[in-house]
């Protein structure tokens, strides 16, 4: 008989990594027509980071995503970056980009101020215009200001900056310290169906609510959550590298190493939890890794809810689930002791 169950997993995850500094640097150049080029040393590894980083530069300059072209990943031409690792790109590289774009923007303000008859600190960049705060009708197109900066004032609008998350080294004995600048939080809830006769688990649906600070690009955040859950499903019930007695892998291929396909994917209901982190670029933190964290716990807790069998060892393959169902009454590995 097939039985349904529900289970949840809740988690926290840091942005960036510890042990050593992990800075990023960036350069932003505003072209004469008010479009811009962002130069970054990070690598696009499929997550859409270059789009998000372009949006951060665009926001600071008051222009659109499409107005920013992103050049990346050439050690001869792009500034240093600690890399596409540790869910740090939006937060760390993003902060460097915001700072770099601000420097370029300040050059535009210096040039525009006498043109508009105000001080530079009275200006803002918005909707492709440099305008007076509180008096948006007093404005100039950003392209006009950028062209004048380069061809009139002789101060082309560009900026370079770097950022490193502030941390405090951990005490080696107690671990006390500030290893990361900030963390994200999330909950995933799974519904599964377990076949009591075979132990086979089908993950029916997962609701996921993730914090990433400000979602710079909600569509890409959702994509990350969906992809992370697919890895979590694999970890929960399918994937496992196996070795023979001589330390050689038994299943180093996609025939015998089973991972989720689109047919194994549950229905996903994804929510972004509204949040703002004052230390991130426009309040953003990160989202890449945390998406794969809570899934296996949620699924295994749902298996327990369905058939009363607790899984202590991943993955929860049909064989293991069946064995746990059969032995659940007499060999519960979880010791339950009164205090004292």
């Amino acid at each position: 008989m097939k039985k349904r169950g529900k289970g949840m997993g809740c988690m926290w995850y840091p942005i960036g990594f510890t042990v050593m500094a992990n800075p990023s640097a960036a350069t932003v150049k505003v072209n004469e027509d008010g479009t811009a080029t962002l130069i970054t040393g990070t690598v696009e590894t499929g997550q859409g980071s270059l789009t998000v980083l372009g949006q951060i530069a665009a926001e600071e300059l008051g222009i659109s995503t499409d107005d920013v072209h992103v050049v990346s990943a050439d050690t001869d031409a792009t500034p240093m970056d600690t890399g596409a690792i540790a869910s740090r790109t939006t937060y760390v590289t993003g902060n460097a980009i915001q700072l770099a774009a601000e420097k370029a923007k300040n050059i535009l303000f210096d040039v525009a101020a006498p043109m508009l008859g105000v001080r530079p600190d009275q200006l803002e960049a918005k909707d492709r215009r440099i305008q007076v705060k509180g008096f948006p009708q007093s404005c100039l197109p950003i392209g006009e200001v950028a062209a004048h900066a380069q061809n009139g004032a002789g101060t082309p609008a560009l900026g370079s900056a770097s950022y490193n998350p502030p941390t405090v080294a951990m005490d080696p004995e107690t671990g006390q310290g500030k290893p990361f600048s900030t963390y994200v939080y999330a909950t995933q809830i799974a519904e599964v169906e377990v076949d009591e006769e075979t132990g086979e688990v089908e993950v029916l649906r997962i609701a996921a609510a993730h914090d990433c600070g400000t979602a710079i690009n909600p569509m890409l955040v959702e994509g990350q959550i969906q992809g992370g859950i697919s890895m979590g499903v694999g970890m929960a019930i399918q994937e496992e590298m196996l070795f023979d007695d001589e330390g050689r892998q038994i299943n180093p291929n996609l025939t015998n190493y089973i991972m989720p396909t689109s047919l194994d994917m549950p229905d996903l209901e994804v929510d972004i939890v509204e949040n703002f982190d004052p230390t991130g670029p426009f309040g953003a933190k990160g989202v890449g890794e945390p998406t794969a964290v809570a899934t296996s716990a949620a699924i295994c807790n749902a298996i327990y809810d369905a058939v009363g069998a607790r899984i202590y060892n991943l993955p929860a393959t049909a064989e293991k689930v069946l064995a746990a169902i059969k032995s659940k009454d007499h060999s519960d590995r979880q010791k339950y002791l009164p205090a004292g």
Partner: peptide, 12 residues
């Protein structure tokens, strides 16, 4: 504009 918060597609 503003760019942040847009469901901008990826050129890649």
């Amino acid at each position: 504009t503003p760019a942040v918060g847009q469901r901008a597609t990826r050129p890649d």
